[in-house]
Structure formats: C-alpha cells, structure tokens
Computed example of a mutant assay.
Amino acid sequence: MLDTLKVVTTVVVGVMVGVEFSVAFVINPILNGLPGDNGLRGRTHGARMLGAVMPFWYMGSLALSTVWAVAGWHHQGTGLVVIAAALLVLSVIMSLLLLVPINNRTRTWTTENLPEDWKEQLNRWDRFHYVRVAVIVVAFALLAAALA
C-alpha cells in the first residue's frame, strides 16, 4: 500500500509541476506574444480556469506527501519526503500571499476595466510564479529521489 501511495504522490506532484512549468515557460510567453488584447484574454481565462483547480491540486499534493511521510516514517527516504512536504507548504504560502491576490484581480479584467498598472501586475505574478515553480520542481525531485 505504501508503494502505491509513493507512486501516486509522485505522479500527482509531477503532473502539477508540469502544468505550472508549462504556464511559466510555454503558455504565458505565447500569450504575451499575441497581438492586441488576445494574450490578456487568454491570461484572464487561465486565471479563472486554473484558479479554480490549482488550490485542490496543491492541497492534494501536500496531503499525499504528508500521508507518505507519516506512513513511511521508519522507511528509507522519509527525510526527503518531509523536506518535499515542507517545500509544498512553502508553495501554498507563496500562492496565498503573493500569487492568489494578483490572480483574483486578473480574472475579473476585461479590456474595458484594465487598471493602469496591469502589465506590471502580470509581470509581478510571473516573477513570483517562477520562484514557485522552482520550489515545486525541487519538491518533485525530492519525492522522485525518495521513491527510487
């Protein structure tokens, strides 16, 4: 049962990392290169769509990692899982304090109600997101190492 938990946790976190990596390094650069307000429309739609899903994914990943750490407490690699879970906690805190407030504003924007600093807000979100991606990539790598 523990082996199944390890694999499921690693896959769930890995897919989450892939989505977030894709947002940072593929989707947003594509959207930023679109003419007119098309990129903005894509980002606001993404903020609504992913903003509804990602909280469950982050909390689910953290829960699975925590259960793995507790269930495998006396097994090899548990220290790596604990550190990974701590990094996932950090990613949730970063999300709540830094990214979610910007995301909540972004998801309501239309071309008619854009704030003057909308580009700066999107750039700030991107910078915070790059750091968050780095944190969850390390968490994923630790889980993969603990699995091996």
Score class of each variant (00 low, 15 high):
L64I: 00
V81Q: 01
L88W: 02
H75K: 08
R105T: 08
L50T: 10
P101A: 03
V53A: 11
A84T: 06
A84R: 02
S91R: 00
A86L: 14
T110R: 07
T108K: 14
A86N: 01
Y58P: 02
I102E: 08
S65R: 00
S95H: 07
L50D: 11
G79M: 06
P101D: 01
L96S: 13
R107N: 11
I102Y: 06
A86S: 13
I102G: 09
S65Q: 05
M59D: 03
Q76R: 10
G77N: 04
R105C: 08
Y58N: 09
L97C: 11
T66F: 09
G60A: 05
A71T: 15
V100F: 06
H75R: 09
G60V: 01
A69N: 02
P101N: 03
T66R: 01
L90C: 05
W68V: 01
L64G: 03
V82E: 06
T106M: 11
Q76L: 09
L96K: 04
W73G: 07
V92L: 15
V92G: 06
G51S: 15
V89M: 09
S95M: 10
G79N: 07
R107D: 09
M49E: 11
L50G: 15
L64F: 02
A71S: 14
A69T: 01
I83Q: 09
G77K: 06
V81P: 07
P101W: 02
L98N: 13
S61C: 15
G77R: 06
L87Q: 00
F56S: 08
V82I: 14
H74T: 12
R107W: 05
T78A: 10
P101T: 01
T110A: 08
V82M: 11
L97D: 12
M49P: 03
V100K: 05
V100T: 08
T108N: 13
G60K: 04
L64A: 01
V100I: 06
A63M: 10
V82R: 08
G79K: 07
I93A: 14
A84G: 11
V53S: 05
N104I: 08
